[in-house]
Amino acid sequence: MKSAFLTLFFTLSPLWPLGPNPLPGDPLVIVNLNTNRVAFIHGGEVQEIYLAATGKWGQETPEGLFTVTVKVINPYYRKLNIPGGAKTNPLGSRWIGFDAYETDGRKYGIHGTNRPELIGGYVSQG
């Protein structure tokens, strides 16, 4: 059975990419797949909690400990050839990619959206 609280987390360590494991007090993001909430933790304390959309059935959000490998402002959406910054870009204005399933931060990540009404649902592609 999935944990009700810690289902996916990865580091946003300022030491990245030098250290593979988070150190106590390092920035951390925890995604709760049961409630579609994302907690940002820094200095061992929850700083913010946000509502998020997670993967739909058949394209579930990966679970595990991951490291951020890519940070992009106005990411390009390769699947539909949509340039970064375009109003039609489903990734919104930010992409924080992580190394799930050895994808080097190019397939799985936390990102913005151009459809805020979908936030809170199981609608994304991972």
Rank of each mutant, 00 (worst) to 15 (best):
S3Y: 07
F5I: 12
L6F: 10
L8N: 09
F10G: 07
T11L: 00
T11A: 05
T11D: 00
G19M: 15
P20L: 14
L23E: 02
P24Y: 06
P24F: 14
G25F: 06
D26Q: 13
V31C: 05
N32M: 15
N32L: 15
T35Q: 14
A39C: 11
G43Q: 02
V46D: 11
V46T: 04
I49Y: 10
L51R: 15
A52K: 02
A53H: 00
T54G: 12
T54M: 11
K56E: 01
G58R: 13
P62I: 04
E63V: 10
L65K: 14
T69W: 11
T69K: 10
V70G: 08
V70Q: 09
I73E: 13
N74R: 05
Y76W: 14
I82R: 00
G84A: 07
G84Q: 04
S93D: 11
W95V: 04
F98E: 05
F98D: 01
D99N: 02
A100L: 11
E102V: 07
G105M: 08
G105V: 02
G109N: 03
I110R: 03
R115G: 09
R115Q: 14
P116T: 03
P116R: 05
P116V: 01
E117A: 12
L118M: 08
L118V: 12
Y122D: 09
Y122I: 01
Y122F: 03
Y122N: 13
S124F: 12
S124R: 05
